[in-house]
Design a binder for these strands. Structure first.
Lengths: 359, 359
DNA sequence: CTGAAAGCGCTTACAG
DNA sequence: CTGAAAGCGCTTACAG
């Protein structure tokens, strides 16, 4: 049988109220040092653990934060979330809070669940993760329901007062431009995603603004391409660029896309007997990659494994404060990761060479 | 203000007990169809949601399952877990159960937390994930505490009665041997991990037994190598194999290791102007890879993205039954995925060739 | 078919 | 410094 508060109190011939007060360090509870010691000792000896349900019921809070999101298909989404739960759970645990996770296939189910969470009081706060097109309505619902929340994404325009967190995509692209300019490249090209999502727009914007600021001009529109995450369409565009006269073609590449763009870039460049690198005469590239990525031929600086958990770690304190105070947190967090060298197989050092075929 | 059971009852001039009984479809509650309809309708209208805490307290169960694990460092571990939480959460949700997640840096903290979970009754069952060396003691603790649990891993020897789930690593390796033999290869080599973990041993065992069964002999001990997940040591071994006389060297490769082994294999084979493939004259390989993996030069059948969530999906029903019955589930589940073609860049089709240097 | 009552295990004023 | 009492919002026999 589990030991209850009453058991501890009976054991010490004290009232449950006093034992409860001491164990919870309640400020206006007066007990001699001696009594406190006995209480704490007895609780330990009897292995007393307060019932979570009873505490939740009487305190009116669950000491639980819910992570709620719409499930997205495909391994890249999975990847993008990996590590998130780890970080959230351990961060919350450190503050004595539990993490409940719930995900659903469609937005309607998510909204239903949020409504239910509010009704059953199963959590004190919510963390929303996912694409802005989903999280926006989710946040609005929580706002209406008066539940503190933290949302991943870029809602600064329509909801500047939301507690929100995301990468500083603009800054990331600007850093990439700076790096290439530092290496001496002035004709830059951009490989991005074609999607109409907030982070894609931010990458785009960051590239354009970085280009203006650092190189004093708008990017050459010929050298701006956005393709799905497939090798072939990227390769076609890149081959077009590379077939231009030597003094016209781009030599620096900013990547705001996935691994397929990188693979196309490396392959195409190798086929014209060049490579990505940091030396004079090398072409150069910088930008984002997926979590697992290895260059085959050359070297480049990348945002690799840009850790989604950095985000969580950054915004969690604010959320915790909001939970304690019971009022919404208001803050926009943007995280700017650093460029670092991508791992490379350095195949060119190991006997690989190319004839001139195009993919 | 939230609406409580009492509000619904007052509204209908009924007793809370009746309303509760009808809403929970309790069998020995008698109410006219008309009354039932009115109750359900009123609950809907008033947006009544029973308090999770109150239900947990009075029912003595939390309708929550806890996923507890020791946090392992490194992206490959992350990857191996990605998708797990998605699957568990949605699977449990479908049965009206919530998922609580807690992870800790070290084993001691995990055990503490399990003890606490038992004491606070914060969950009805636990799912343990991680390496056998950790989960074994965790499972033993839960067994002692009398909490139903499901554990990922291979505990069939010491705890055959545990509800446990893992891949059929033996079967996977045997399938790989069969595939290579089907292609006509008889001199096989094995690239594995050097670790003393249950799944590594199972891969090893599966290869050896598969080799015996299909090829009628023990594997050639010269062609058996286990290296850390790094390219260089794998490449050294493979180069040794490839330098043997044509009619002695292995032509089929079973991989029970990570992407580095594959990268070494591909590079070394390409440098002797061969490639992995399914045609006569090709070398061939089959085995496990990490979630994100692309061949550069050739083709092979792999267990790619062997989905950890298949495991969860497979064992969850059993766990749910155990929770309902309140007694431990007893069952060993092994999941055998199918080999499928790895994605390939097919660089050999696109102008890549090799000189003879060694990595 | 229906309702009053006790109980789940805590917390929180409040009176001493 | 201490203890009796009410309350959190349900569920569950139990008596009608």
């Amino acid at each position: 049988m589990r030991t209850r508060l009453k058991d501890v109190a009976d054991n010490l011939k004290l009232s449950p109220a006093l034992v409860s007060g001491v164990l919870n360090r309640r400020p206006n509870v007066w007990a001699s040092e001696e009594t406190r010691k006995r209480i704490i000792e007895a609780a330990r000896t009897l292995n007393y653990q307060p019932s979570a349900a009873a505490q939740a019921l009487s305190r009116g809070k669950s000491d639980t934060v819910a992570l709620v999101y719409r499930r997205l298909e495909g391994p890249s989404y999975r990847l993008a979330y990996s590590g998130l739960v780890d970080t959230l759970s351990s961060g919350l645990q450190a503050s004595g809070l539990g993490l409940a996770v719930a995900n659903f296939a469609d937005q309607e189910a998510v909204l239903d669940h949020l409504q239910k969470l509010a009704g059953t009081r199963a959590c004190d706060a919510v963390i929303l993760w996912g694409r802005e097109q989903d999280t926006e309505a989710q946040g609005e619902l929580l706002e209406k329901l008066g539940i503190p929340f933290l949302v991943k994404g870029r809602h600064e325009r329509d909801h500047p007062n939301w507690n929100q967190i995301d990468f500083d995509h603009e800054g990331m692209m600007a850093q990439a431009v700076d790096h290439l300019a530092d290496l001496g490249h002035s004709r830059l090209a951009y490989l991005g995603f074609p999607h109409d999502e907030a982070f894609v727009r931010a990458l785009r914007r960051g590239y354009v603004q970085g280009h203006r600021r650092r190189l004093g001009s708008d990017p050459d529109p010929r050298f701006f391409a956005e393709h799905e995450d497939l090798v072939a369409p990227n390769a076609e565009t890149i081959n077009g660029w590379l077939s231009l006269p030597e003094d016209e073609r781009p030599t620096g590449f900013v990547v705001g896309a996935g691994n397929s763009a990188w693979q196309a870039l490396e392959t195409c460049i190798a086929q014209v007997h060049r490579k990505l690198g940091f030396e004079t005469g090398d072409d150069a590239a910088a930008g984002v990659t997926s979590l697992f990525f290895t260059l085959m031929f050359g070297n480049a600086l990348v945002y690799q494994g840009i850790e989604i958990d950095s985000l969580a770690r950054l915004a969690l304190p604010e959320l915790l404060t909001a939970i304690e105070r019971g009022e919404p947190a208001e803050s926009v967090h943007r995280f700017l990761p650093a460029l670092s060298p991508a791992p490379s197989l350095d195949l060119l050092q190991h006997g690989v060479s190319f004839s001139g075929d195009a993919p």
